[in-house]
């Protein structure tokens, strides 16, 4: 009798382990923690990409406005791919696209924007990658949707058509 209970409970235990692993496996595909974090945007100082003027958070982000902060770099290959999507999104007047130039060389970055077009209302520099960390970013490319000084969504990795559609829906 005791043996039976033991064996059944062990079978049950392994079944649960199986289910957990199975679910874990499904989840890893969308492995980005806190995609919609309603967090305040961080306070930071930065330099304007073109003018070299010092900026801080309130110079760039205003209340009651929608922003899309895009972290990019000229050496980042996926950034090139998502760039046309940003350009097309820029036609939507409701949204202001801001660029964060991540650990880049200025000449190359300028060349990048000249070649592919500039979707950004404003670009600021992050030479050391520290501002990206203030934002809780992982690397390039990464994109934040901001409204009312709050981060609405965060997209790790390159943007794609689905995400663009989602953004369009959200800003309506």
């Amino acid at each position: 009798m005791r043996n039976k209970i033991l064996s059944i409970s062990i079978f049950l235990f392994f079944s649960i382990v199986f289910i957990v692993f199975f679910k874990g496996l499904k989840e890893t595909n969308i492995y980005t923690p806190d995609l919609d974090i309603k967090k305040e945007i961080p306070f930071f100082h930065a330099k304007d990409f073109y003018t070299g003027k010092k900026l801080n958070t309130s110079d760039i982000f205003k209340l009651d406005q929608t922003y899309l902060l895009n972290i990019w770099s000229s050496w980042c290959v996926p950034c090139r791919k998502e760039h046309p999507l940003l350009l097309s999104l820029n036609e939507n007047k409701k949204i202001n696209i801001i660029g964060m130039n991540y650990k880049d060389n200025k000449i190359k970055a300028e060349k990048f924007l000249k070649e592919l077009g500039n979707p950004y209302k404003r670009v600021f520099e992050d030479l050391e990658g520290t501002i990206a960390i203030e934002w809780g970013a992982y690397g390039v490319p990464e994109t934040f949707l901001i409204y009312n000084n709050k981060i609405i969504r965060k997209y790790i990795g390159p943007l794609n058509l689905n995400i663009i559609e989602e953004i369009k829906l959200l800003i309506k």
Partner: peptide
């Protein structure tokens, strides 16, 4: 966070280096 199981100390990635600066 972007490496496979390395600490920031052990890694040379962009992310880890920025983190070290912070």
């Amino acid at each position: 966070l972007i490496c496979q199981g390395q600490s920031v100390y052990d890694s040379d990635s962009e992310f880890a280096n920025s983190l070290k600066i912070i």
